[in-house]
Amino acid sequence: MNDIWILATASLVASSCALVGVLLVLRRLSLLGDAISHSVLLGIVLAYLVMGERSEMAMMVGAVLMGLLTAGLTQLLQKNPHIQSDVSIGVVFTSFFALGVVLIAIYAGQIDLDQECVLYGEIAFVPFDTVVWGEQSLGPRAFWLALAVFLINVVVIGVAFERFKLMAFHPLLALSLGLSVPFWHAMLMTLVSLTTVASFDAVGAILVVALLVIPASSAYLVATSLKAMMGWALVYAQLSVLLGYGLAVWLDSAIAASIGVMAGGLLLLTLAIQQLLKPKASQLNLS
């Protein structure tokens, strides 16, 4: 039963990451995604310190605020002619992340967080922290959080699919059509932050990036439409979770890290197959 809960949680987390990741990769915002997934740590730590205890609601609010602050601050810094976009990203996320880690070290006694779980997540312990309602245990807390965020992602992306498509393809066109580009940008950043905070428990702050960028990039290699790309990203994400879990059981290694490794492995496999097929394809074109 525990294995099922772990797999289900990881699968939901990976699916959320895949959907949001597709939009990030297409808008060439992979690095901003990386930055937000780091900054969110500070939001979570601050939520702990303010509430004095673990509270999912506060964590989500803190994470989203920090995510939006990161996106906003990088844009603000880029207005200075001496700061390029990657510099502004680098300055902001390293500072926020560093502050988060230092706060964890200083308030070690008061925060139920340590450097270990920042890195690895605690997916192996997911089943032991359950939601209890009355006498009945309803299953792990992390699972419900992941499910809630996944549903938010599906609903928001599903409802505004055409908007996101236009934004991903051609932001300037979107602007000329009178769409509120800043609003949809902020919306995407909110989704990234929410997804990160849900993933944080499971896979840790840093491996979120692997799940955001790698399945989406694999899908980018094979898909021909945005819908298909999201579909492929979900498939790659599920495969990474299943194979990664197997790998972790086999080698007795960290589950989250193994999932990240398998995501990368699948990308490399896809690339290898494409490279092998490539010369044949060009011959066909010539004949």
């Binding site: 990769v25 060439r28 992979s30 690095l31 995604g33 990386d34 890195l119 690895y120 840093i206 491996l207 990036v209 692997a210 955001l212 960028v213 790698i214 990039s217 980018y220 790998l247 972790a248 080698l251 007795d252 290694s253 960290a254 989250a256 890290a257 193994s258 999932i259 990240g260 490794v261 995501a263 990368g264 990308l267």
Partner: peptide, 19 residues
């Protein structure tokens, strides 16, 4: 994306090996 892929894939590999 290439940068983010490289970064996260190698990091995952490293963490897996460490664990």
């Amino acid at each position: 994306a290439a940068l983010a892929i490289t970064l996260s894939f190698f990091f995952a590999l490293g963490l897996m090996a460490l664990s």
